[in-house]
Design a protein around this nucleic acid. Structure first.
Lengths: 222, 222
DNA sequence: AATTTATTCAATAGATTCATTGATTAATTG
DNA sequence: CAATTAATCAATGAATCTATTGAATAAATT
């Protein structure tokens, strides 16, 4: 094999990987699968796609080994194939947040509309945790909490927050987190908590970011 | 703005970024620009593209802010816009080397053909450097060496290696590096050095990887 | 002012990607 | 064993991407 063919192959394969990432729905699928595995139907519903469409996107991801399938009964459970997939998604995200003004603007617009004026970073949260004066709230669906969450975090899925808000310890700062910087659950929760008089802020990042920084986390068995 | 539109925008922008990466030539362009800036003509020549084609690919990258241009005289010098671009490229590369069997096979085929049987990692090189018993050889073109290189590395561009090989200190182990894991210069150099009786091996990674690990490096002014 | 040089632009045809539709498969349930 | 369910497959046309060609800019040189 000569030099030229070698390069064509290697870069061709990698470009194929990038191409598999190059669709908004497929990035959203990866963002979802980074929380926990899902069936085709769950993905279709959560992203408002037809089953056929969701299935086809998943197959694009599968063709380049970014996800794999576990068939159980008549459900096909899709998983991310590797933590490195999350790593690529995170670095793409960070690049985008730095280079694409449009993203930052969109993010700010949305947050100011929800009255979310500042976000706490993971490093800042770590400090607060050391001082033990903060309530950590996971507002993702329970299944995702069970698949892995920040130690000592309480689980109140966003759609139960209004009714369960009274159970929260008052007088302590609350930091809410969800799936990641583009997940709006935490924004909605902060809006709601602040309306009820809580000192609440959201975590900028999400649980997958916590995990990929090798910080300890808890998971509950199935 | 509602939730759905918000997601569509953000993920749409990020997918646009990924799409810009999703072409073999554009990945090669990024790999080249990670060494040092280049004119359109240099890129066209080095990748065997027509000027028009090279220019168009560069504009795809520019449209999403991955590169920027500095016009000087009638040359347009293209630079990477951000170190984060290298970070994404590296994580994509790593994912590919782990998930795509085809890449590993191609890499091994090529290396065994060049008699390069083992590569040293950056961590291993750091150990050898502490013991001060290794000659480090940079076989990239001189311009790239000048733009940044590993401290104490000697510069002998691959096409001058045969004639200048006699000047190398004999009896000491040689570690050769170049642009990165897919760059073949180091492989060719190792083949050549071993033929001349040197104990030579290549660095698995390249200079950009050294740099992005925040290790100290030298650069020579223009 | 005319020429050269590096780059970009514009137009085109061929290839690829996408969402939708309806049919098909394969495992479970009644 | 028929019906149901989750998922995939196949076919379609619309949209997008790509490399090539030749023309157009725009800066430097003659």
């Amino acid at each position: 094999m000569e030099k030229k063919e070698f390069k064509a192959r290697v870069f061709g394969e990698l470009a194929g990987l990038a191409k598999a990432l190059a669709h908004p729905f497929r990035l959203q699928i990866i963002d979802l699968l980074a929380q926990s595995s899902r069936t085709v139907e769950e993905i279709a519903t959560q992203l408002s796609l037809s089953m056929a469409n969701a299935s086809q996107h998943l197959q694009v991801l599968k063709a380049v080994n970014l996800v794999h399938v576990l068939k159980e009964g008549h459900y096909a459970h899709y998983h991310l194939a590797d933590d490195k997939v999350v790593a690529v998604w995170q670095s793409l995200r960070e690049l985008g947040m730095e280079r694409l003004a449009e993203i930052e603007r969109t993010l700010n617009d949305f947050r100011s509309q929800k009255h979310v004026f500042q976000a706490v970073t993971i490093d800042e949260l770590l400090l607060k945790m050391e001082q033990d004066n903060v309530v950590i709230l996971d507002v993702r669906p329970e299944k995702e909490y069970r698949a892995g969450h920040i130690p000592r975090a309480l689980s109140i899925p966003i759609d139960q927050l209004l009714e369960r808000i009274v159970g929260l310890p008052s007088g302590r700062e609350v930091v809410v987190y969800c799936r990641g910087p583009f997940c709006v659950y935490a924004d909605e929760a902060v809006d709601l908590l602040q309306n009820q008089g809580f000192a609440a802020s959201r975590l900028e990042e999400g649980f997958p970011d916590w995990k990929s920084r090798q910080l300890p986390f808890h998971a509950l068995s199935d």
